[in-house]
Design a protein around this nucleic acid. Structure first.
Lengths: 330, 330
DNA sequence: TTGAAAGCGGTACCAG
DNA sequence: CTGGTACCGCTTTCAA
């Protein structure tokens, strides 16, 4: 089923059919309806590959995320999709599961598809990946990683500030032995969230921090917490790298017969919807996913980046709920 | 950046470059390496649109879901993706948010992309959508909807049985006033899950059922439950159409100062991971998402459907946890 | 207002 | 083993 068949049926040339379909230049209304009817009858759907090959400007952007099971990434994806659809763009999603070879594969796939722009919301990132991306013209937005470069925009959240607020708050509540639950990708020497927690030991000499990590999931949060509490039963607070893992952490704590927050406080990060619906509701730090998604669309589709090589900085704020409280233990 | 540039640099023809890239027919190893080097240096990525246009068999399948925010759909998607990747296929995802115009749009997009197969995991479905799908040759798998047709496979879960088990269990616990929380798409006259609940009134003459609905989300579950309890504070159990909404329901119940399950029992459906991590852990019905995803791949990629127009039936089983218990109220 | 034809970037068949 | 070339389906001048 192709243009030619439609053209034959409508007794016009393929050029005319094409014109009608792209409601472009003047076509006599009688021929137009004739063509429309043929299209209708044949249930013709244009071959999108041929269309993009023929040199039309690409009408799709790519979004690569580290873990689509984490609502944080899903929210950003959905925000991008909403913005893209509003401009008549399609978005192609890819998931890396924090594996950097998969990131490379995904990037190549996107390039192969000739997307108009690419957003990489990932923690794993090699220098050569960035280099490869730079070879191709394509506009890119990085979140949370990546160096400023030609035609790449960096969106970063000031995790440092967010984490600091969290730690200060816990310290003021009397917590002195804190466990940090991360996932493997957050434990590299580059990663702000874990680092801030570790560094706060310098600011508070009487503070003790233990760190643990597992995969980024409910299960992972639970396992990491189990390991942490088994190794040090004196912890009075568990700081999690994100809300998802925090919900897993709470599960483990409850299972040990401990109360939250009376025995142990728990904090998350991101402020995903789930953090309001779990029990107890989670103290966390809000990351504006919608805004991030919108920024991505602005840069990739509207080209609203007045300055290329731009950096968008977001200052996250604390959200106090019921999973944190003063220590009753010493 | 195209084949020709690579060919020129390697001093061979485009045909040869193509051969090397598709590690096909015999190519002298010295030329092969020469080509490889050119590809490497130019960081050449083949244009996938051109490639599929050139008539190679499509290496991608489409998956359309009603609500990607509901982990149930996400799990199926991921299962399909895993199976597809194992066979070297890509999967393109589309989300309808339960809107049937969006379903039509998505289907057309998939056809336009010339996917090798299409899975529609959706509740919303018009007859004309099915008809349109039937015009094109493409193999299709429906979940939960759709009539048997040429080259379409239907996967269905015996919701009837699952729901019956749930209701029987609650009845045996002493519950006589039950609220059902659905989302709009489940309240049509076609929909098994809601129907079974309604029909059970015939089996148990002293049973009273109230139904409510909202959007398929945590929030929706909460709002629907709020409406239900405001209208009838005598309900002793809330049966939810899925786990996501059940978690929302539990939130509302707690907020009213009621205990689960002492005051009100709650049930979910699907047995998503979250149902084990919420508090209290949710009594639910297990739907094997991995198996469904695998079935989809089998049919769409491996063509393991010996009989076309096949129907795969799944019998779901009850999972008892902590959100249900005997009624203490009358 | 419409048609003919030249690509777009690959693949694969046919010669050599 | 390698090159030439005819498509694949659509868009877009250029002419008529």
């Amino acid at each position: 089923m192709n243009l030619e068949e439609v053209a034959r049926r409508a007794k016009v040339s393929t050029a005319t059919v094409s014109r009608v379909l792209n409601n472009a230049s003047l076509v006599k209304s009688t021929t137009r309806t004739r063509v429309m009817r043929a299209v209708e009858q044949l249930k013709y759907q244009p071959n999108l590959h041929a269309r993009s090959l023929a040199g039309v400007k690409s009408r799709s952007i790519g979004v690569i995320v580290s873990n689509i099971e984490n609502p944080f990434f899903l929210d950003i994806y959905k925000a991008v999709e909403a913005g893209a659809h509003a401009e008549g763009y399609e978005v192609i999603m890819a998931n890396t599961d924090y594996r950097s070879e998969q990131l490379l594969t995904s990037i190549r796939l996107m390039i192969g598809r000739r997307v108009a722009g690419l957003a990489a919301i990932v923690s794993e990132m090699d220098a050569d990946v960035i280099a490869e991306l730079n070879e191709h013209q394509i506009p890119v937005v990085f979140y949370d990683v990546g160096a400023p470069l030609q035609n790449v925009t960096n969106i970063r959240v000031n995790y440092r500030r967010g984490m600091k607020k969290l730690i200060d708050y816990l310290y003021s509540l009397g917590h002195r032995r804190i466990g940090f639950v991360g996932h493997h990708a957050t434990l590299g020497p580059i990663h702000e969230r874990a680092n801030v927690v570790l560094e706060s030991v310098a600011r508070y000499p009487d503070l003790v921090v233990k760190t643990g990590a597992d995969v980024d999931s409910l299960e992972g949060g639970r396992r990491a917490t189990r390991a942490l509490l088994s190794a040090d039963s004196g912890l009075t607070a568990i700081v999690c790298v994100n809300d998802l893992m925090a919900v897993g952490a709470m599960r483990e704590i409850r299972e040990r017969g401990l109360r939250i927050p009376e025995d142990i406080s728990v904090t998350g990060f991101d402020n995903v919807k789930l953090s309001q619906f779990c029990y107890p509701a989670l103290t966390t730090v809000h990351i504006p996913r919608n805004q991030i998604g919108q920024n991505i669309c602005d840069v990739l589709i509207l080209n609203t980046n007045t300055i290329l090589e731009q950096e968008i900085l977001i200052d996250p704020e604390l959200v106090l709920r019921d999973s944190t409280g003063p220590t009753l233990r010493r």
